[in-house]
């Protein structure tokens, strides 16, 4: 009974915050609602006894991906009037796509029926006397290790691509070289000048390599 209670709590909150993501006008609020939706999805995973997936969802999506979303969205300067004008202009295309998805959903539920049981698809049986994290690891890293490596390679290619597209080496920028700073000793960093009593010494112009530019 309690699990049904929590299922409906998480499900209702997930759907409501999902709807709020597209209904709120403020993009930062939309991202915050998205985070709430992720949390509720994690709660649903816990109810399915997939606690490893729940934690991964929180670590990866909430802890890293959404932070970057928020980071970008916070710096946007959104003009709501312009946004609304764009909404009216694109409404026809949006209505068409939405209509197609609606027809598909009707077809799906017409085929499958409208049963609203909390557990339509109970989780696969967990092997006895090992935790499901270990079971997941054994399947992923033994049976499917090549697919796993392949997915890793694809991600690596995407990452290198993003770096290649955005990396620019600007010329004429002062950069810190920690090893050069640490290697600097009394011989190169210090100069002892004898000052005659009563006189003065005008030090020779210090040569900075970057000052010449």
């Amino acid at each position: 009974m309690a699990s049904a209670l929590f299922f409906y709590l998480f499900a209702v909150l997930a759907v409501a915050s999902g709807a709020s993501v597209i209904l709120t006008k403020n993009p930062v609020h939309a991202v915050l609602f998205l985070i709430l939706a992720f949390f509720n999805a994690a709660g649903l995973f816990v109810l399915l006894q997939a606690e490893f997936l729940a934690m991964l969802l929180v670590i990866v999506y909430v802890g890293a991906v959404s932070v970057l979303f928020l980071f970008v969205v916070m710096m946007l300067d959104v003009d709501f009037a312009e946004l609304k004008a764009g909404f009216i202009k694109n409404a026809k295309v949006g209505a068409l796509i939405g209509g197609v998805v609606l027809v598909e959903l009707i077809a799906l539920f017409g085929y499958r029926g409208l049963a609203l049981s909390p557990v339509m698809n109970p989780s696969a049986p967990i092997p006895a006397n090992i935790t499901n994290t270990r079971a997941l690891g054994q399947i992923l890293y033994t049976n499917y290790v090549y697919y796993f490596q392949g997915a890793g390679l694809i991600l690596l290619v995407a990452m290198i691509g993003a770096i290649v597209l955005t990396l620019k080496h600007r010329q004429g920028v002062k950069r810190q070289s920690i090893s050069a700073q640490v290697a600097r000793g009394p011989a190169t960093g210090l100069e002892v000048i004898k000052v005659p009593s009563g006189g003065s010494v005008i030090p020779p112009a210090v040569k900075h390599p970057e000052a010449a530019e």
Binding site: V28, L32, E51, M55, V58, I59, V62, G63, M74, T133
Partner: peptide
């Protein structure tokens, strides 16, 4: 005493950033 306790700790410690980001914004 959950069996993914370490992951939970990692997840929760990564959420600390939200309080700061939300407050700053």
């Amino acid at each position: 005493d959950m069996n993914v306790g370490i992951l939970y700790l990692l997840a929760i410690s990564s959420l600390g950033v939200y309080g700061i980001v939300m407050g700053g914004w």
